[in-house]
Design a protein around this nucleic acid. Structure first.
Length: 566
RNA sequence: CGGAGUGUAGCUCAGCUGGUAGAGUGCAGCGUUCGGGACGCUGAGGCCGUUGGUUCGAAUCCAAUCACUCCGACCA
């Protein structure tokens, strides 16, 4: 491609609102252009990168027996009602009516559509297992798009779905998908951190997220310092180092005006870990009370998962008071649970003893509160948020928190969709069973952005060979007729050899061309000037190096072959 | 949905003590240049987000509304 023909406009300056390197360089290099919040047009350069990423993913999906398909973007409401997600998902699912006044949705993911397809096509164990995948637009009406392509509303995702006769078979395939994902990310130059993740309202038990560690990441990851444990903070577990002592007698103490853990700890001169905090959430009219050791924070995801609800909200004082709790001085002592009051007790409270807790009376706390003796509940579990400085379960290894960008995920769905949507097969004995499903997603645009986050300098992206929009950037330095004709010939020769060449044939000053070359990030830059052709040579410069070398024109093809290994 | 901010030329922004609009850059043309975003001249390009109000007069003041950005909430 000749730059003179390329549909592109590079920018000297990115909009002030662009902060992430990927956002800045994709805009400045003319890869993408924002149309509206979270909606981006892709220009030819960006499209080439996306296509190369897609081809890598396609190869790896085909290698694990994937078959490419295409599912609709617009679905009738009924399909989503079948799975129960029409009501379970909030405004993120864009709903609208078609001309016949029929309720429709824009697909934010395709479990329903693919389950519908497979249940009609597959009916026997002989047809299983199978995996189908697609590259398809998703629309999610995100409350807040941000960071260029990192978080958008409309995006192409590679989503794959596998169907199995048994959980064991899914387990085996899940491992294959896991390896395929590692290959994909390695091929685009990313070394992902792979963490256990929340399964959310998708149900299922096991899921992993592939993360690019980056300060701009939206997810918090908890990683053991020896790398032995890695999980999304939402679900990460840790050692609470609880110690049980002999139970002492209750003792009411005045704590006027001291409502926070910190204040009470200072007043009574006890460690925050000897306090018991009481956090309130509400779901409609019912109250959820969470009792937790004072030095720990609540993980709302763990609570949502335990209660199996899509959302909880901080409770209003009015509701808290209605159940007999006194905000600031609250505990479960003397308050039994009932059908509108769930009392969740973190195991840090169960396994500790003699806590200072609220007296449910303004200005008073109680010392030596113990689970079982002084209050009770059958809702015991792990509801605490793992944080930097905590220790791995059962070991002394420290956990640290890092930020990450989610670039892919794999999920064991199990039979959630196949049961609700009756995707069943007949086994050897003629008995009907729900198919066991897995799903595997990668956001293609986000991956492109992640690669830039991962690999750039102050001038622009440094694309890996595998997905650079063009492999070779050719430019004439100066408009001398001999220089131009040398470049023209070189351009033709390289193309004939099958290289993707971007030829900057514009009548521009060298500085302009160099800046653009950096923004377009081709791995190899070949420059031809009057000086070089005097020696029948050209400049050979790699994007990831700062200096260039002069090589003979005869050696260009050889050197390219060597560099690209083809 | 809460909090903050911004809407003026394709892009980045100035103008905002009220008097109908500017720079840089980009674009077109001419000339001088030609190794890391050169310089000079000429030119095209704006209903100052939208609507209403105050005023003789509004980009400028007030109100509403829309859009976009950031922080938070949210994020199968």
């Amino acid at each position: 491609m000749k730059v003179s023909q390329l549909v592109v406009q590079t920018l000297r300056e990115a909009p002030a609102s662009a902060e992430l390197p990927s956002h800045i360089f994709l805009l400045r290099g003319g890869y993408i252009k924002q149309l509206a919040s979270g909606l981006y047009s892709v220009l030819p350069l960006g499209k080439r990168v996306l296509q190369k990423i897609e081809n890598i993913i396609r190869e790896e999906m085909n290698r694990i027996s994937g078959q490419e398909i295409d599912l609709p973007l617009v679905h009738p409401k009924e399909l989503w009602e079948e799975s129960g997600r029409y009501d379970a998902i909030g405004d993120e699912l864009l709903r609208f009516k078609d001309r016949t006044n029929h309720d429709m949705v824009l697909a934010m993911t395709h479990e329903e559509a693919v389950t519908d397809l497979i249940r009609h096509v597959v009916s026997s164990y002989k047809q299983l297992p199978c995996m189908v995948y697609q590259f398809k637009l998703k629309f999610r009406d995100e409350p807040r798009a941000r960071g260029g392509l990192i978080r958008v509303r409309e995006f192409v995702m590679k989503d794959a779905y596998s169907f199995h006769t048994t959980h064991e078979d899914l387990d085996k395939y899940y491992q294959l998908a896991y390896e395929a994902y590692k290959n994909i990310f390695q091929r685009v130059g990313i070394a992902p951190v792979i963490v256990q993740s929340d399964t959310g309202i998708m149900g299922g038990k096991i899921a992993h997220e592939f993360m690019l560690e980056a300060p701009s990441g939206e997810d918090n990851l908890i990683i053991a310092e020896d790398g032995g444990y890695r999980a999304n903070q939402e679900i990460a577990v840790f050692d609470k180092e609880s110690v049980k002592e002999d139970e002492k007698a209750l003792e009411k103490v005045p704590t006027p005006g001291k409502k926070s853990i910190k204040d009470v700890s200072e007043l009574l001169k006890v460690e925050t870990s000897q306090l018991m905090k009481c956090v309130f959430y509400q779901m409609n009219d019912s109250l959820v009370t969470v009792l937790m050791r004072g030095d720990l924070n609540v993980s709302e995801i763990k609570i949502k998962n335990y209660l199996k609800v899509p959302a909880i909200f901080p409770a209003e004082d009015k509701l808290i008071l209605k159940f007999g709790f006194v905000p600031g001085y609250a505990s479960a002592v003397g308050i039994p649970s009932n059908k509108n009051l769930r009392i969740l007790v973190d195991d840090s409270v169960v396994n500790g003893s003699n806590f200072v807790a609220g007296a449910n009376e303004k200005g008073f706390h109680i010392k030596n509160v113990n689970f079982n003796r002084d209050f009770n509940s059958s809702d015991i579990g792990d509801f605490a948020l793992a944080e930097s400085g905590h220790k791995c379960k059962g070991s002394e290894v420290l956990l640290k928190a890092v930020k990450g960008i989610e670039i892919g995920n794999i999920f064991k769905l199990g039979t959630k969709f196949s049961t609700s949507m009756k995707a069943e097969f007949l086994d050897e004995k003629g008995k009907s069973n729900p198919m066991v499903m897995g799903c595997y997603g990668i956001g293609v645009g986000r991956l492109m952005a992640a690669v830039v986050e991962n690999s750039h300098d102050k001038f622009g992206p440094i694309w890996p060979k595998s997905i650079a929009p063009y492999q070779v950037h050719l430019l004439n330095i100066g408009a001398d007729p001999d220089v131009v004709s040398t470049c023209d010939h070189l351009y033709a020769d390289l193309q004939k050899e099958g290289y993707d060449v971007l030829y900057d044939d514009r009548d521009e000053r060298p500085g302009v061309k160099f800046k653009d070359a950096d923004l377009w990030g081709s791995p190899v830059r070949i420059g031809v000037s009057k000086k070089t052709i005097a020696e029948k040579a050209c400049e050979w410069k790699l994007r990831n190096e700062t200096s260039f070398e002069k090589i003979s024109l005869d050696r260009v093809l050889l050197k390219l072959k060597d560099y690209f290994g083809i």
